[in-house]
Design a protein around this nucleic acid. Structure first.
Length: 229
DNA sequence: ATCTCGATAGTCT
DNA sequence: GACTATCGAGATC
């Protein structure tokens, strides 16, 4: 067991979701990934977070990178399901996706935000944010909790932010998410459970100019850990 | 709270 | 040459 080292193994976050999870309908997968846990045990430490915001991209969707044709950039979307599609955009940001649909069919779920669960100090370093050491218990519990939420959003509230906080880049593009080797997605923790379908909000996707009418962005009502209201 | 804009480089027309 | 599944800063209300 290497639980104490924090570099390998399941670490109490659960075994990876099976390959079949990624073979369900991509829009359904985007909903089902809410509350699941993203874990990356990288060379300099482990970070983990509860997936709080997702978007679906399908083959017949003009906003999908693979809508036009297969290229070097979108190649992993055409590969087997359950792998990471990580791309570089805007000259400075990375975005993390989970590939869905059978091999040859290019669909994926973009993870837009997570609630930080582990490795927060590492996330602060990578994001260039200070830890604000002090913060004595003088504040009301509600105020402390609000500060925790604000920091969580600053660390991982947005696709570019979460990739920076987790240390993800094109180096991890194509990683198999169904192996607990280093980058994987586990089911929701027992104390949290899968998302209540009634509580899942569906809105327009962010930052696209085509296919804007498809309500394929998902998050939980009242969840503070999202990229935008 | 909401807006506008600049940074910065890979990808595609 | 244009566009981009973004972010952060600064202006403005």
């Amino acid at each position: 067991m290497s639980a104490a080292t924090g570099t390998t193994g399941v670490e109490g976050f659960g075994a990876p979701l099976p390959r079949d999870f990624y073979l369900q309908d991509t829009v359904a997968a985007a909903r089902a990934l809410i509350n699941c846990v993203l874990i990356y045990a990288g060379p300099d430490g482990l970070t983990a977070g509860r997936i709080s915001e997702t978007e679906a991209y399908t083959r017949d969707d003009p906003a999908c990178h693979a809508y036009r044709r297969r290229t070097a950039r979108n190649e992993t979307m055409f590969g087997p399901p359950g792998h990471a599609y990580i791309y570089f955009t805007y000259g400075m940001h990375h975005c993390f996706n989970a590939v869905t649909a059978p091999e040859g069919i290019a669909e994926a779920v973009l993870v837009r935000a997570v609630e930080p669960l582990a490795g927060l100090e590492l996330m602060r370093q990578r994001r260039g944010l200070s830890s604000k050491a002090g913060m004595p218990g003088r504040h009301p519990a509600t105020e402390t909790e609000r500060a925790r939420m604000r920091e969580g959003v600053a660390l991982c509230g947005g696709p570019g932010r979460l990739c920076q906080a987790f240390g993800l880049s094109r180096a991890q593009n194509g990683s198999d998410l169904t192996e607990a080797a280093s980058l994987w997605i586990a089911p929701p923790r027992a104390a949290v459970g899968p998302p209540d379908p009634e509580a899942v909000v569906a809105t327009r996707r962010i930052g696209i100019s085509q296919g804007v009418e498809r309500p394929w962005r998902f998050y939980l009502r009242n969840d503070p850990y999202i990229s935008r209201r």
